[in-house]
């Protein structure tokens, strides 16, 4: 629908795509800057650093006390092989994304945005991109952990890279869920709670794979089991099925979000 304005002439089509991308970029840059102008951003940044730092410290201690029978490299443990990772993962994205669209409904700025030549798709995509970037920015400082390990010994960087890829993909899905719930309401807290619940349900249903509830359902549980996926990524396996699962889920959630914004706008 966005190309409609420019599709009157064939030569205008390329130009229209460029214009579409430029609008997306302008929205994205504004959004990212405005995230970094909120107190919440820095609060979440600090919290996640403290949490990750503390957790990493525990891993290193556990690793050094190998008589306890745990034989897992700290970085592998760090990428989702303890519950701490999922606490941070499930709480962080709802916290940062809850205001994304809800605040626009509340203040009415969405009216200004959508009465400029902007489509709902551009709005939602730019939000997602900005919050996904911010989410990943939360994890960038943790690169110092493997660097530290490298300093004191030898480290295989392959699994570290795939581990971060896992964080990026899983985080992308959780961020898209956060954007989705934020589009539904003007109440930030409600959006946050809702997206936390969605993420939590996804997590719980996924780990049912370990409980052998029923032989028939187990493949399904494995398919969405984020713990299992992170285990693979942490060990250095990049399974195309996982990548496709996360990317297509993100796309689906964003598509539904765009539809939700359209519907909600109509009922304003």
């Amino acid at each position: 629908m966005s190309a409609r304005a420019g599709s009157r002439t064939m030569s205008g089509a390329g130009e229209a795509v460029l214009r579409w991308l430029r609008t997306l970029w302008v929205l994205f840059v504004r959004e990212l800057r405005s995230i970094f102008l909120t107190v919440l951003a820095y609060a979440v940044l600090c919290l996640s650093l403290f949490a990750n730092g503390g957790v990493f410290l525990i891993y290193v201690f556990v690793f050094s006390e190998s008589h306890q029978g745990i034989n897992m490299p700290p970085m592998e443990m760090f990428f989702g092989q303890t519950i701490f990772f999922y606490i941070i993962m499930l709480v962080g994205p709802p916290l940062i994304t809850m205001r994304s669209i809800a605040a626009e409904w509340k203040s009415g700025t969405i009216e200004a945005v959508l009465t400029a030549p902007v489509t709902e798709a551009q709005l939602v995509l730019s939000k997602f991109m900005a919050y996904w970037c911010f989410f990943f920015a939360l994890w960038v400082p943790t690169v110092s952990y493997p660097l530290l390990l490298e300093w004191y010994g030898n480290l295989d960087w392959g699994p570290v890279a795939s581990g971060y890829l896992g964080i990026l993909l899983l985080g992308g899905l959780l961020v898209s869920l956060g954007i989705f719930t934020s589009a539904l309401t003007k109440h930030q807290l409600l959006a946050g709670l809702l997206s936390f619940s969605l993420g939590f349900v996804l997590f719980v249903v996924g780990i049912l794979a370990y409980l052998n509830v029923s032989a028939k359902a187990t493949p399904f549980f494995e398919f969405i089991n984020m713990w299992g996926h992170m285990e693979e990524f942490a060990q250095g396996t990049v399974d195309t099925r996982r990548v496709v699962f996360y990317l297509s889920s993100i796309a689906t959630v964003l598509f539904v979000t765009i539809k939700a914004v359209q519907l909600k706008r109509v009922g304003q």
Binding site: R4, R30, G108, T109, E111
Partner: peptide
């Protein structure tokens, strides 16, 4: 309805409660 973007680029609109991004 059918060409919203073309219409929107013709119009400068001041909404009722003047929603502006407060942090900018």
């Amino acid at each position: 309805v059918t060409a919203p973007l073309a219409v929107k680029s013709l119009i400068g609109y001041l909404p009722e409660h003047v929603p502006l991004h407060p942090e900018m």
